[in-house]
Every structure is written in structure tokens, then in C-alpha cells.
Design a protein around this nucleic acid. Structure first.
Length: 605
DNA sequence: GTAGGGTTAG
């Protein structure tokens, strides 16, 4: 291998680089075989070019480094790892001279990494005697992109500096993907500023992304606000960060500012904007975005985001129509559709979609199985659920994780099999967390088996684990504006009319037999106070406001941060009947479609 | 020859 790297004085590198380009032209005129090879490497296809390698060797001809690098790239795009090894073997014998050898080796390292053969990439890297910034960056990037090897990326950065090679913008934008603690990101940020790379758009977008992934919105905003240079991806990074951290309004606001700044969106932008709509349940804005998505109908990520938006906004007709139209579907499309149907109370269809998925030979993953188990539990299909839970490892090679156990506790709990649910918890290999307890408590409450002593103990465990009681929040989209209501908070500008409308609704449903179910207030209070607490639950404030502003015939959609309580549930059923309205409430887990006094969840949630 | 942003659950 060492013959690959005739070492050269560094001041001759540029001259060699120039001569290496000339080499191509000189030789292609000299020999038709080399000319054909160069042309194939530049234009493809891959396999005829590969087939020429033995002929070149037999004729004693040495391919130029530029063509070889092109061939390696072609291989990454069109070929397999074995094709790559073929090139590697050829090069090991017919090495290009001088700096060209280094170029070819660097691209081979990159190729192995792209094929996921990290160890091959590293061992070739080890053989390079005079590693330059590209060699180092290639492995740093490969490690930073591999789950479980991120720490090594940082160690390589240190080793690189010790070796006297200065990192460049490529290196920093790669290594930032491996920085997953505030301390690391801040330290890297400091180095970047010191070296003066903080205006590079690649570095900037990676830095924003790194801050946002830690949940440090201010850090991301700071880097973004300091913008002296920016491009579309920098905008996309900040918008994605806001959308992913649940600040949909912030994301949409930035999207508007981006357009005002003269940038037009691409697939990446639209995907994040859709996610923001999904988080805020902004169906109308989502529909508008759909119009811009039409020209990207081959982009699966974007199509999946659109599909999820329709599911999460409770518009299953749109989701279904889109799903049928999609020209390709991957495991995410299928999982989205299965969970979407299940969350909207259409479990039987969800399971039919799962059967269809299997018949199309798409392998389910652990998220698909969460959707399937969720569907079973929602439809009371205890046996099917138990079957899938027990056999998912054998059938699909998916080991049950915490989330699957949680689904099983839900499934058994809902079906009233509380003892079996507790048994499942005891049979877990990991400590039960607050989610599991919450699920069990929900089942107890559902079956009116709430033994307070037990509940208090459970709440204590949850408090000890740092679970906080959030105030209830509901929000609705109206004329592309989001209106937020907080439980017990009457500071909204329209509060007086909201309370008036609420009283009117209560009067109407009293006639249908509504009685406030104060048992859902767990605090120790007098009955009247309990009724007041119930009356101003956030979804009741939201429905009163929506009732005054929604057009006739249009369903009302409410988003909630907490699960809906039994009293609000009964309330909504009666209001849907008395007012002849379809009401759709999305809580953090599922949807309730209220229509004519009935809910899609079958009073079971 | 090396680099950045986007989708499914909870």
C-alpha cells in the first residue's frame, strides 16, 4: 500500500495537483483504452467502467487519479460495497503517484463509510502515512454520523490537531453532529469563533442544529440572529429546530420571515412547516402548505410529513386519499397511517392496513408495532394484541421495548384485566417509569377502581421521578390564528362572552341530563368549588369560544396538552348533540370525534 | 477527495 503515497514536499502539492489534471488529457490522447475509461468514469454507467480495470492492468496502463475518484463516486451512487472493494484492490496494485494517491485513498475511505463499512474505512485511513485535513474530516464525519461512535469522532478531532492538521469548515460542520452536551457545543462554538469560521453557512447551520437538538432554543436563535451570512439551509435549520421543539407558532413566524427575506422554500422547509402545523393542529394552514408540496410528489419524507399532518389534524379522508395516491410508501408511511387510524378510533382499518403492509412485504419496525398494539387496545382486541406482543420478536425480529409494554398495560387495563396488567409490569426487564404508572392509573380510573390510597402512592412515585403537573391548555385554529385557553384562566380578552356562551351551553345540555361529574376533581374541595374547577377546564373555554366563531357545518378542532377528563368528555358528547356540531379533540395520545352525542373512542380512553 | 436542514411513537 505504501507505494500509493510517494511522499512529496508540501510546497510541491499544488504543482502536482495541476500536473495530475494534465495527466488525464495527456494520457487520454495517448491511449484509446484510457480515453474510454476516463469517459465512462465521468459519465457512467458504473459497470462497463469497472470491467475495464483488468484490461488497464494487463496493458500496463495506469489510470489517472481524477478518473479513479470519479469512479469511486459513481460506485457510491450506483454500485455495491463489493464493487468498491474491486476498485480498492485495483488501486492497491496500480497506485497513482504522488498527491493523486492521497486523493484516491481519501475517496475510498469516504466510500467505505458511505456503505456503512466503518471498520474498513478506518483501517484504510490508518494506512495513509501523510493524512491531510480531508482524510481526517472523512473519518470524523463517518463517526459523527454513526450512532454509538460519536465519542470517537471527538477523539479523532483531538488526534487530528495533535497531528498538526488544522480542522476546516467541513470538519466542524461534521463534528457538531457528535456534540450532544451543552458543554461540548459551547466549547466547539468557541473554537469556531476563534478560528473565524463562524460565518460559514455550513458551520452555522450545524451549530444551530446542535443547539436546537439540546433544546437550547436561545442558543440556536443567538447563532441565527448573529447571521452575517445565510442561505436556505440555515433558515431550514432554525425553522426545523422550532418545529421539533414544539414551538409551531415560532416556526411559522420564521417561515414568514424567510419568505419576506426573499428565500423560496424547498422540500426541507416545507417538511418542517408541516410538522409545525401538525403540532399545532393547524389544518387550514396545512392545506395551504399542501399546495406547495404538490410539485415535490416524489419526495417521500415530505409526503410522509403531509400524511402525518392530515392524520394528526383528524382529517382521515385527506390522509387516506393521499396514502392511496402516493407513488411509493416506506415503513414510515405505513406506520403513520396505522397509528393515524388507530388514534382516530378506526382500529379495525388500522389492522387491515397492517395486513396490507405485510402482504406488500414491507417489514414493520418497533414503531409500527406500537401503532398495531395501540389499535388492538383501542378496539378491545385483547387476544390479537397479546398475540402480536408475544410473537413480534419471532415474526418480525422486533424485541418488545418499554413502549410496547406500555401498550400492553393499556390493552389489559382497558379491558378490565388489571391484575394481568400489573403482572406485565412485574415481568419487565426495566424499571417502570411514570408513563407506565399513568397508563395503569388511567385504567383504574376508567373502571372506577380508583383506590385513593393507591393513587396517592403512585402520585408520590411520579413526583419523586420529577413528574410535574402541567396546567391544562387547549387551543384552536381560527382564521389561521391560534387561540390558547388555560384551565381556570379567565384573562382572555373575550372572557365575558366566553363564560356567557359556556353558561348557555350548560343550560342546553342540562336539559339532556348533564350533571357535572365532580369525582374527576381529585383535590379535597367543597362541591361548588369542584364544579367551578370543572367548568373552566381549558377545553370547555375553547369550545365556548369556538362555538361563537366557527361557521356552520364546519367541525370544531381542539388540541389539548393533557388527557381529557370524564366530565369534559360527557360534556362534549352532549354539546355535539344539542348543537348539532362535529367536535374533534386531540389529546396527547388520541383523538375524540364527537358526533350526535357519541364519541369515536367508545367512551374508552 | 471531506461538511449542514426535513418524516412515523411517547
Amino acid at each position: 500500500m505504501n507505494s500509493l503515497f510517494k511522499s512529496l514536499p508540501r510546497n510541491r502539492l499544488a504543482a502536482t495537483r495541476r500536473s495530475s489534471r494534465r495527466y488525464l488529457h495527456a494520457h487520454s490522447h495517448l491511449h484509446p483504452l484510457l480515453a474510454t475509461f476516463s469517459r465512462l468514469c465521468a459519465e457512467g454507467p458504473l459497470h462497463p467502467a469497472l470491467a475495464l480495470l483488468p484490461d488497464l492492468a494487463a496493458a500496463g496502463l495506469r489510470a489517472d487519479p481524477v478518473s479513479l475518484c470519479r469512479l469511486v463516486k459513481l460506485c457510491v451512487r450506483q454500485g455495491t460495497a463489493n464493487d468498491g472493494r474491486l476498485i480498492h484492490r485495483h488501486v492497491a496494485h496500480e497506485a497513482p503517484q504522488g498527491v493523486g494517491g492521497l486523493f484516491v485513498s481519501n475517496s475510498l475511505v469516504s466510500m467505505y463509510a458511505k456503505f456503512g463499512l466503518l471498520d474498513d474505512a478506518l483501517s484504510l485511513f490508518d494506512e495513509i502515512p501523510e493524512k491531510n485535513v480531508v482524510s481526517w474530516t472523512t473519518v470524523v464525519a463517518a463517526l459523527a454520523n454513526t450512532e454509538g461512535r460519536k465519542e470517537e469522532a471527538l477523539r479523532f478531532l483531538v488526534a487530528m490537531r495533535r497531528d498538526g492538521v488544522a480542522p476546516n469548515a467541513y470538519t466542524f460542520s461534521s463534528v457538531l453532529g457528535a456534540c450532544d452536551t451543552p458543554r461540548l457545543v459551547t466549547a466547539m462554538h468557541a473554537s469556531i469563533v476563534k478560528i473565524g469560521l463562524d460565518s460559514d453557512v455550513f458551520v452555522r447551520s450545524s451549530l444551530i442544529d446542535a443547539y436546537m437538538k439540546l433544546g437550547d432554543l436561545d442558543g440556536g436563535r443567538y447563532v441565527f440572529g448573529e447571521m452575517v451570512t445565510g442561505d436556505l439551509v440555515v433558515w431550514n435549520s432554525i425553522i426545523a429546530g422550532f418545529a421539533q421543539s414544539g414551538d409551531g407558532v415560532g416556526a411559522l413566524d420564521l417561515f414568514k420571515r424567510m419568505k419576506d427575506a426573499g428565500f423560496s422554500s424547498n422540500q426541507g422547509t416545507l417538511t418542517s412547516v408541516l410538522r409545525a402545523c401538525t403540532g399545532m393542529v393547524m389544518l387550514e394552514v396545512g392545506r395551504q402548505v399542501h399546495a406547495h408540496v404538490l410539485k415535490y410528489d416524489k419526495d417521500l419524507i415530505l409526503q410522509n410529513a403531509l400524511l402525518d399532518m392530515y392524520c394528526k389534524c383528524g382529517s382521515l379522508q385527506d390522509a387516506d386519499a393521499l396514502f392511496c395516491r402516493m407513488s411509493q410508501r416506506d415503513v414510515i408511511s405505513w406506520s403513520t397511517m396505522i397509528s393515524g387510524l388507530a388514534q382516530n378510533g378506526r382500529s379495525a382499518e388500522a389492522l387491515r392496513v397492517f395486513d396490507l403492509m405485510k402482504s406488500e412485504d414491507v417489514a414493520p419496525n418497533h414503531i409500527t408495532m406500537i401503532g398495531v398494539l395501540f389499535a388492538c387496545s383501542h378496539a378491545g382486541l385483547v387476544e390479537d394484541g397479546q398475540y402480536y406482543f408475544k410473537s413480534m420478536e419471532k415474526l418480525f425480529g422486533i424485541k418488545p421495548e418499554r413502549e410496547h409494554y406500555n401498550c400492553m398495560v393499556d390493552l389489559l387495563g382497558r379491558a378490565g384485566k388489571l391484575d394481568e396488567a400489573v403482572e406485565i409490569i412485574h415481568g419487565m426487564n426495566f424499571e417502570p417509569d411514570s408513563t407506565i404508572w399513568r397508563t395503569l392509573l388511567g385504567a383504574c380510573r376508567m373502571h372506577k377502581m380508583l383506590i385513593l390510597q393507591h393513587a396517592e402512592k403512585t402520585w408520590k412515585v411520579m413526583r419523586d421521578q420529577g413528574v410535574q403537573k402541567e396546567p391544562g391548555r387547549s387551543w384552536i385554529e381560527l382564521e389561521k390564528q391560534v387561540h390558547v385557553f388555560i384551565a381556570g384562566d379567565l384573562s382572555h380578552t373575550c372572557s365575558d362572552s366566553i363564560v356567557e356562551e359556556l353558561n348557555r351551553l350548560i343550560g342546553r345540555i342540562n336539559a339532556l341530563g348533564y350533571v357535572p361529574q365532580t369525582e374527576f376533581v381529585l383535590q379535597d374541595l367543597g362541591n361548588e368549588q369542584k364544579e367551578d374547577l370543572l367548568k373552566y377546564h381549558s377545553e370547555k373555554l375553547a369550545i365556548a369560544f369556538a362555538m361563537m366563531h366557527t361557521m356552520e357545518g364546519k367541525p370544531i378542532r381542539i388540541m389539548k396538552n393533557l388527557r381529557i377528563c370524564g366530565d369534559c368528555h360527557a360534556f362534549m358528547k352532549l354539546v355535539s348533540k344539542s348543537e348539532g356540531k362535529v367536535i374533534i379533540i386531540r389529546d396527547p395520545v388520541r383523538f375524540h370525534h364527537f358526533h350526535d352525542g357519541v364519541c369515536s373512542c367508545g367512551d374508552y380512553w
